[in-house]
Amino acid sequence: MPEQQRKQRPAPRERVGEEAAVAAPTERGEKLKSELDDLLDEIDEVLEENAEEFVKSYVQKGGE
């Protein structure tokens, strides 16, 4: 592929354009938030209990 056709690092202006393109409309944002809430609810169910004690008891010997 010739050098000039290759995707080079985008110019700043193009990058601004990309950011604008991915900015979600409010409706989509709401949907994403609700999906995230559902996901956190799922994770709550598998999360170990008593976080402080659990993390404290995780002690490893150095390796390598």
């Binding site: 993390v55 995780y58 002690v59 490893q60 010997k61 150095g62 390796g63 390598e64």
Partner: peptide, 14 residues
């Protein structure tokens, strides 16, 4: 078993 590299208490494994 955990696939990580540290116990958060100063011990690391590679």
């Amino acid at each position: 078993v955990y696939k990580n590299n540290s116990d958060g208490k100063g011990n690391s494994y590679g």
